[in-house]
Amino acid sequence: MNMLFDGLPRRALVALGLFLAVLLVAPWLVNAYILSLLVVVLYFAYAGQAWNVMMGFAGQLSLGHSLYVGLGAYAAAMMFTKFGVNPWVGLLVAVATTTAMGAIIGFLAFRFGIGGVYFAILTIAFSEFVRVGFDHWPWLGGSGGLFLPVANLSSNDLLNLRGAPIMFYYVMLAMCVAALGFCRWLLGSRLGYYWQAIRENEDAAAALGIPVFRYKMIAVMLSSAMTAFAGVFYAFYYNNLFPEQIFSMGRSIEIILGPIIGGLGTLIGPIVGAFVLTPLADGLSELLQWAGIDVPGVKQVFYGICLLLVVVFLPNGIWPMLARRLGLEREH
């Protein structure tokens, strides 16, 4: 436990505590719209954190993370609707499925020396394969979608993840906190050092005794395992799954924008990114809707502009700059 907070200046601890406290009471202070927005923010913070393990820590670019969200979602939804298995047990099936998928992609790529851009393309290709597969799998609804029975929203059933948005909010918040702590631990461990070495220079990493293949595999598998939870959550929060949507490349991009804009490879970056991007994009489309302007693709254009601004003005992302300004940086 000690290690998690090692080297953090006092004010960083205070800021972290305050932020968490605000998030803990927030649902009781905001309206339903803001609450639903916050759920989405936390969802992206979590998914971004999971993606960041692979790209931010180990330098392996996945542009197909919606694959793991989708597989996780379908695995748990299948267990629930077809076999009556509760989502927490379903989560185990989801994790096993996404981890196996990650292992297959990682093995094919790393075993045959596919890296960089080609690896990224491979992740997209797999995502598309699987999407088409689910589109044509009638047992799970095919392209017509898979639906979870919507329960009475007035009672919260945590075991079956049936209930009001506020329950989902706290579940997601707990997962975000857990993911943050876990990633902090990872980064300070042997694994974290090895990953960063591989990210920075593979040849040098190998020359220092690091079995590069094995540690890249671990990164992909761990990241896909973590992402499974985002999928399970998605399934039980939205109650409907369409291959077209959940496996789409656009969803993958949405996952990775947060960490990139917040600060790639940092622990707080994915959280900052989610808190900046999601409300802005949503607010913008609300605003346009209110003004009666209907521009298709406005969200994508907005994401594009944000990405451009960050790449040009803050190439390391928002968080490293913010941390420095506010004196919240970790001491080494």
């Binding site: 050092y193 070495a197 920075e200």
Partner: peptide
């Protein structure tokens, strides 16, 4: 390496820690 291959984004200490992990039981 003749053409040096540092881990540019890591601190000098962390560069060397990566090497030292090869023969160390803990970080």
């Amino acid at each position: 390496f003749q053409v040096v291959k540092p881990f540019p984004g890591l601190s000098v200490l962390d560069n060397v820690v990566v090497g030292a992990l090869n023969a160390s039981a803990s970080v």
